[in-house]
Design a protein around this nucleic acid. Structure first.
Lengths: 142, 142
DNA sequence: TTCATAGTTGACTAAACAGGTCATATAAGT
DNA sequence: ACTTATATGACCTGTTTAGTCAACTATGAA
């Protein structure tokens, strides 16, 4: 019942890339970690997972960096969280025969489902718009 | 983003006590663990935490056991989960100055808040009614 | 061509949490 | 007394979290 910091960092990074998406610019891991106070090595690890999930791509070299693979409108927070958090294999509800067990399992499923819904409803673009509207004159911070 | 089994067990136990609440009967840890397939020693530990939280009380002796402290109508799933899960001390959002950090923190807060809302909306009595309606002829299973 | 920049990979670690178990003490009903 | 049942605390194994470190590789720029 807690949001992993890793998911937070991943979302920050994706937002930073989204802010430069229209311009087609590459963003380096170093600049993201410097601008948003994210541990550098940890961020690199997270960016690799986002790349493995097909959300971003990278290029090397002295002016390399990362950029989004798709339009920020089409990327949801759910995808980002999934990319960096463990697969969450389905709960094998085997032998719990009692109906209390059944009812509670249903309740937990519903709670999880609602939460996931919320993550799916938030697109990267919407989050970016929110960030911009919160600091209209301070775009350099993004 | 996962419901601890501990919370599941706690809810099961509370439901088992709620089912006997009107009759004023005590329910032993052993019977709960036997009826609903909950590891006995682990359940005992959980019951202690529920007692420490003031949700249930206990009496010892050869016909001892546990019972609810309050009416099932007034007890929510949120209280049960809180009783057995870590205190979740407030996130000390210190130095994250960037607005991406701020926006994301708000988003996570909202997600958590919605989830908590769901837990607060479910009373023990409502869950019990659900369990009874799911198995009207098998009350002995509760 | 050399060099610095920046991504790639893999191993490693310390601490916390999850999901329990075991042993022992203590209280109370029969 | 004896048994049932709660009370308490220590202990344990495995996984996850939140990282770090070191070495390697590709590439643009001087």
């Amino acid at each position: 019942m807690q949001i992993p910091v890793k998911a937070h960092y991943a979302a920050i990074a994706m937002l930073a890339l989204a802010a430069r998406y229209r311009a087609g610019e590459l963003v380096s891991a170093r600049s993201v970690s410097a601008d948003h106070n994210v541990p550098n090595q940890f961020l690199v690890q997270i960016l690799q997972q986002l790349r493995a999930a097909g959300l971003i791509c990278s290029s090397r070299g002295s002016s390399g960096g990362f950029k989004l693979q798709r339009d920020p409108e089409t990327i949801t927070l759910a995808e980002i969280v999934d990319a960096v958090c463990s697969p969450q294999l389905s709960s094998t509800t085997e032998g719990d025969a009692s109906n209390l067990n059944q009812v509670m399992s249903q309740v937990w499923d519903e709670v999880i489902r609602q939460q996931r819904n919320q993550l799916e409803q938030r697109t990267l673009q919407a989050l970016l718009d929110q960030a911009i509207s919160h600091a209209p004159e301070a775009m350099f911070y993004i």
